[in-house]
Design a protein around this nucleic acid. Structure first.
Lengths: 160, 160
DNA sequence: GGCCTGTTACTCGGATATAAGCTGTCCGAGTGTAGAGGG
DNA sequence: CCCTCTACACTCGGACAGCTTATATCCGAGTAACAGGCC
């Protein structure tokens, strides 16, 4: 159960897009160069963010990606859901109904499997914690711990 | 990010082993037949539970698996960690340090990446919720909602 | 009849194929731009 | 000098391989039970 690296890439790219002001679209190649990531694959992740409504894409020459809304309105949960998909990590296959060993009349399966319920409860806590952190908070934390990062990033994009 | 099916199998098998009393070892083939699961693969998951100290294995003829301790002392977190491994789902690769775009002096990387911190916090909540549910509670819940399940299981194993 | 021993059948344990999903890459559709030509 | 048309270069978007991980399987090591032979 390992999360895709794309989540980390996507979150960092959103912060960079915010630092750049959002006046002009930023192409995938420049974002990828900033972090030394494979550009085509990063493009795939950014497309997922567009489908989720987190970014907007501008096609054509001088096109690229923009934040679709301020970072205050995007949570870490939104980014994870955009990349990983909305489905739960634990998928109950109802093995209690399979096999004669524990087969019971259908009335016994009105209530959900206890294991499945506990798993969903735990994942709900995880989602709640992720939804409580907006990207704006992450940006502010970063600026507090590394005040020079934003300026350094802006300078690099001005040169490239 | 999908969790292995083995987790569901392992949890159900622990409940069955508890219902059977633990006087005699139960072979993999019988457990697999109970749920119509592929026996050799289930064996692999049970071995993981043995390594984690949740089950004990008895080799030789009339061998099989037994609970190593009462269900009160095993949490759902223990089962997940035994099957999935102890490492976190989110692995921070520190892309903020890669690439000239956001490269800063090493002093800026004393504190952990904010994204990584938020992810770890969320996973901690997930783990906390899983560790709060013992298998004994799951067994009791199941018996409350489906009182006949335990007897039916015992009867099936008596015939097979 | 009781005990010992060799055989046998059975089960765990790890090493081995197969399939699926993530990672990484490429090329085509679409669009804004720039330049050249004409009015 | 300004407008328009055309060709171009650039970027997104989806379709295409490579590789790691999860799934499923098989065979050998080890052990308890059983049957046969011996005392």
């Amino acid at each position: 159960m390992r999360m895709s690296q794309g989540v980390e890439w996507a979150a960092h790219c959103c912060l960079v897009l915010d630092w750049l002001g959002g006046e002009r679209p930023v192409a995938t190649a420049r974002l990828a160069g900033c972090f030394e990531l494979p550009a085509p694959y990063l493009n795939k992740q950014l497309q997922a963010l567009v489908k989720a409504g987190i970014l907007e894409s501008v096609p054509g020459a001088r096109g690229g990606f923009l934040l679709a809304r301020p970072l205050e309105k995007t949570t870490l949960m939104d980014v994870v859901a955009a990349i990983e998909g909305p489905e739960d990590a634990f998928a109950c296959t109802e093995i209690r109904q399979r096999g004669a060993g524990t087969a019971s009349p259908p009335s016994a399966y009105r209530t959900a499997c206890g294991i499945s319920t506990a798993m969903r409860m735990a994942e709900l806590e995880w989602r709640r914690a992720l939804a409580a952190r907006t990207l704006a908070q992450l940006r502010d934390d970063t600026e507090r711990h590394a005040p020079a990062a934003a300026d350094r990033t802006r300078r690099w994009f001005a040169d490239h």
